[in-house]
Design a protein around this nucleic acid. Structure first.
Length: 480
RNA sequence: GCGAGCGUAGCUCAGUGGUAGAGCUCCACCUUGCCAAGGUGGCUGUCGAGGGUUCGAAUCCCUUCGCUCGCUCCA
């Protein structure tokens, strides 16, 4: 399959329009005016996401001996978030330095400089003269209460003792269940625990279509290792993850990696690499792969009072495992796949001579003799619909009946789409626009010799294929 | 969070105080023997929502919700 060779300047508007029109993504609650930061995945979008999840789960969990799955609850004991650091450090009003990006507790910063945090009409403010203790800058934000977790109450009484949070990341469920899974799975270090699920952050300002949403889905692996082996395992997982992106249709050339310099790492972290994609609105993170030392398990040991030690029977050593955390956003990967697949091209009319070519950016119409085609060049592995099945014409019952048999066979294996209405060309183009890699057309010759036309989305070329060979042929490309 | 712009049919958009429109899409039938073909017919709107001004508001004013862009934010 071709990769996206288009030089088109993709706009989020045209992508969002296609996604809405074809049923990938809708704004949540649109009939009530919408709600900021929440999105619904339509018939095609949920297939796309299911494919992302399935391929990740297969690659991370099923195909490895030393990774087990978990599906932890979204609401956990509130102490989890104290241990993780999501509550404690941010319950107080915070001030950020815009210049050096340090963050301070507002009252502590004032106290250091013999000043008093001011309050009027419920709004906090810094007195004049307070500066960043790190760099001396006066360019500080206003003090803000800074908890981006959604809170709720467990049980019918909404008092403080019933306070709980929707998880802001799935990872803590893994750490909290670490010792139980260690026991039941009988795995030995190095081993991993993987989880896919929803997470919630009350983002101040959701932006960029579905990129930063308030409800989103994560695919996280915590891979537990012997202390001291962090660097080697971190490199291993960066490499593994890049291979996976290539497999789903985001080759290395379409991605950028960012390695955090040591001074930008969290204090407990050994290394961190972001995998990024060049979205129309900027190069942005799809996944972070962090070597987090034993910070998380140690914190849970401290807060819960339950040891999180691992005993290594071979060396008789006892230690708190270190962890490598590849943490990926399902929605962000879906968006990257949509952006990467999107292509507008101009093709010669009436099948005359000439090659398709990418549409000129900004041009409203194709030149004389050409017509526009919008095609989503998804990898066949990830495409929401694998094949469209078409009787060449619908007013010949024996043709429709035969096509229906082919359709029923294919749909047992893959998500397929039946379409018998309108001209065949229109049906092909409709499938192009949702990225269906194959068109299977049943014509009169099929009734004689059991062969069908297999049409390729990217090249638009057609080959005559015996029905016996159809599934193997498709399988080669969908599940190589 | 601040500033600016925008919100009219499924999509793209026209409509500056006087009967809500176009193109495309979509649906049905006919035709059609492989690339958005042709014919006929058809559906579609609380003009984002609420309030106000007016004899009369898609249009003017206020509020609110949402979207976009820039700053900000992104533990």
């Amino acid at each position: 399959m071709k990769t996206n060779t288009s030089t088109n300047v993709l706009t989020m508007e045209s992508l969002a329009s296609l996604c809405k029109r074809r049923g990938f993504i809708f704004q949540s609650s649109e009939i009530y005016g919408g709600i900021n930061g929440f999105w619904d995945y339509g018939p095609l979008g949920c297939e796309l996401k299911a494919n992302i999840r399935d391929l990740w789960w297969r690659n991370i969990v099923r195909e490895r001996d030393n990774v087990a799955g978990l599906d932890a609850s979204i609401i956990m004991h509130p102490r989890v978030w104290e241990a993780s650091g999501h509550v404690g450090g941010f319950a107080d009003p915070m001030v950020d330095c815009r210049d050096c990006r340090r963050r301070y507790k507002a009252d502590a910063l004032c106290e250091e400089q013999n000043a008093q945090l001011q309050e009027s009409e419920g709004r906090l403010s810094l007195p004049d003269g307070v500066v960043c203790t790190g760099c001396g800058s006066k360019n500080l934000t206003e003090p803000r209460a800074f908890n981006l977790m959604f809170s709720t109450h467990v049980g019918p009484v909404a008092d403080a003792s019933a306070m709980a949070y929707l998880r802001p990341e799935t990872a803590q469920g893994i750490f909290a269940d670490f010792s139980q899974i260690l026991t039941v799975s009988r795995m030995k270090v190095p081993f991993g625990i993987a989880q896919i699920g929803k997470a919630f952050r009350n983002e101040i300002n959701p932006r960029n279509y579905i990129f930063r949403s308030r409800e989103f889905e994560q695919m996280e692996l915590e891979f537990f290792i012997k202390p001291g082996e962090d660097t080697e395992w971190h490199e291993y997982w960066v490499s593994e993850r890049l291979k996976w992106y290539d497999m789903i249709g985001l080759p290395a050339a379409s991605l950028e990696t960012f390695t955090y310099p040591p001074d930008e790492l969290a204090h407990y972290a050994v290394a961190c690499v972001d995998i990024k994609y060049a979205f129309p609105f900027g190069v942005q993170e799809l996944e972070g792969i962090a070597a987090r030392g034993n910070y998380d398990l140690s914190r849970h040991a401290e807060y819960s009072g339950k040891s999180q030690d691992y005993f290594d029977p071979e060396t008789n050593e006892r230690f708190v495992p270190h962890v490598i955390e590849p943490s990926a956003g399902v929605d962000r990967i879906a968006l990257a796949l949509l952006c990467n697949a999107y292509c507008e091209e101009w093709i010669p009319k009436n099948n005359t001579d000439g090659e398709p070519r990418p549409a000129d950016p900004g041009a409203k119409r194709p030149p004389e003799g050409y017509e526009a085609r919008t095609v989503m060049r998804f990898s066949p592995r990830i495409a929401p619909v694998k094949a469209g099945v078409f009787p060449l014409v619908k007013n010949k019952p024996e043709l429709v009946a035969k096509a229906r048999i082919v359709y029923e066979q294919l749909r047992r294996r893959w998500n397929c789409f039946w379409d018998q209405t309108g001209a065949i060309g229109r049906r092909y183009r409709r499938q192009d626009e949702i990225g269906t890699p194959f068109g299977v057309t049943i014509d009169f010759q099929t009734l004689d010799d059991d062969t069908v036309t297999l049409r390729d989305r990217d090249t638009m070329q057609q080959t005559r294929v015996a029905l016996d060979e159809l599934m193997p042929r498709m399988e080669q490309q969908i599940e190589p």
